[in-house]
Structures are given as structure tokens and as C-alpha cells.
Amino acid sequence: MTGISALGFDLILAALILGAGLFAITVRDLFGAVVFFIVYGVFVAIAWLRLGAIDVALTEAALGAGLTGVLLIGAVARLSRVTTPAGNNTSDEMRRPPAGARLASMVVAGSISGVLGWAFLSLPDSTGLRDAVADNLAVSGSANPVTAVLINFRGWDTLLESVVLLAALVGLWSLARDRDWGRRAGLRQHARPGGVMATFGRLLPPFGLLLGVYLVWAGSSYPGGAFQGGTVLAAVWLLIMMAGLMPVPRMVSVGLRAVLVAGPLVFLGIGIAGAMAGTFLGLPPTYAKPLILTIEAALTLSIAATLALLVLGTPDPSP
């Protein structure tokens, strides 16, 4: 796409993003708002493609639109289960602040957008760190600059991120009530045998597995990587569990916890080995590629398990 048609496409896409975002915030029906938010995520993923950030587009499509959607739809289902018997609280939650306060919020939010837009337009041109990354790509062990930054140049960020994921899961699990502890995580799954869910649960996982593993493997040279692949694998696992073809693991399972910590541990271990050789998290150029693949493989497993369990949430409260 060149020239005027590309400009038109971008303008329409930006309008669709803003429209879906607006509906996700203002639609009265909570389920409708969640559906608009999922659509919004898909549009944003396309915007990332237009910006040439394919790795981000893959992550946004899989996480922002995919897993977040499952998480939020599950949350709406659980909320309606908890609040419907109580009855009259829906009117309370649908009420809005007075018109004056809404107008004031609109003016303040609009000004913030305006100032940010003005700041964005008046930024000086800069090549950023693109050239620095390109110059060192040969010794990074990865031909995909984004993977090189994630695992090698800024490995510290990614290591801590995998720990943040674990911390979020620990935080979520600590919200479970004592009597629910040790039960299976998340809602009890009901899938009608022979129904759509059960059929898709058998049909899609082989393709999902192939795609997930491919994304991790390809991530060392092309767009893809541990996060994108891990998210697809998490989705496959969730689908199988939702279709009732595999039991949801118990939160106390030792094997499950070993998988959860494997990624950060392997990453940290290689980082400490690097510290012995000179630099913490430094990958020697001769071994960089196999080390990156090892880290990515372990991280993928842990990320897939952690994301799936974060989406499942705490055990359904016993009646």
C-alpha cells in the first residue's frame, strides 16, 4: 500500500480503534463492553502491523485480544453469578457521576490528550537505539533484533518480567479462601459432549501446538518468540481444559509449580553463570544462540503455564 490508500487505511483504522475503545468504555451492558474491548484489541494489533512492529502485533493479538478476552468474559460470568441473587445492585453500578463532574472529566482528559499529542508532534527526530542494536546483532545470537533485545541486551528486564508474572500469580492465588485452597483453579468447566466447545477442543490444539512451537523456534531469526509462542500454548491448554478433555491442575501440585518456576530459574542460572564468566546475564557470542534457545524454551513453558493459570483465576467458591 502506498500513498493515499495507505493514508486512508490508517485513518479508518484509527477511527475504528477510537470507536471500539469508546464503546468498550460507554456501552451500558457489561458483556457488550467486554466484547467491544476484544474487538478493540484486534484493531490495535493491526495498527502495530502498520507501524512495522510485527512482534508487538503478534503479542497484542494473542494477549491483548485473545487471553484478556477469555479472562474478562470469565470475570463477567463469575460476577453475574455472585451479584444476581442479591438483585438490586445493578442500578447502583450503572449510575454515573453528575453531568457537571462528567463534563469536567471530559475537559481534563481531553486536555491531557491534547498536550500528549502536541508533545508527540513536536518531538525532535531521532534514530533511537536502532543503529546500536543493528551494529551488535551479529554477536547477539539472534537474527531478530527484538529477540536480541529481549533475551540478550535487555535480559535483565525480561528476567524480572518473568518474576513479575509469578508474583501476580502468587497474589491472585492468595485471594483464594482457605477452604478453597488445593482445589482445582478457576470455574468448573461444563462442555456438552459433541458440542462446539468439545469439537474445537479436539480440532484446534494440534494446530495451536504447532503454531506455538513454531513461533518460539522462528523467534530467534524472524518475528516471534517466547511470549508470543507461550501465549498461543497457554490458549491451547485453556481450550483443552475448557472443553473438559483435561482436568484443571490443583494449585498444590508440585509438578505444576516446578513448571511455573522453571523459566525464571533457567534464565537466572544462565545469568549467574554469565556473572562467573564476567557479566551477569552476559551471553558469550559463541554460545549465544543455543543459550537463547534454552532460555526461550524454558521461559515459554513457564509463561504458558503462568498465563493460563492467571486467566483461570482462583477456585470457584464452594457452594
Partner: peptide
Amino acid sequence: DPVPQALIIT
């Protein structure tokens, strides 16, 4: 620029 991309993925 790949560095912001990596930060955004994180």
C-alpha cells in the same frame, strides 16, 4: 526501533 518494541512486549 527494536528496543521500544521489546519494552512494549514486556
